[in-house]
Amino acid sequence: MSSKNVRILIAKPGLDGHDRGAKYIARALKDNGYEVIYTGLRQTPESIVQTAIQEDVDFVGLSLLSGAHNELFPKVVELLKQNQAEDIIVFGGGVIPEEDIPALNQQGIKAIFTPGTPIKDVVSFIEKNRKT
């Protein structure tokens, strides 16, 4: 029996403690057949990247509601690159104003899911971008 399972890290960078969304997405992705690793609160970009590498994940999903996304999301992408792990795909979610999204995309965050996004959109993003 050989098969490539998709592994996803759901991480909460920064200091905000609102993890309802992160926990929901983690559980919903599990219910869609993925292996999901959850870091818990208050993760620095450095620890998120080390975790992503050790766990050999295919995706990193960042959840943030405090407004620090412009600083913290690009930092994760940058550190992945520094560690030769730029093949790991980063996406984000949380309270993120529409107008910030183009700049985040440009800095390598592949997708931003704002509140109210149905889980099937996230799943189809993963299916489209997963390594076979």
Partner: peptide, 12 residues
């Protein structure tokens, strides 16, 4: 076939 892996949370 999915899984939620949360043990490392406590060793993070």
């Amino acid at each position: 076939g999915g899984a939620l892996l949360g043990d490392r949370l406590r060793m993070q």
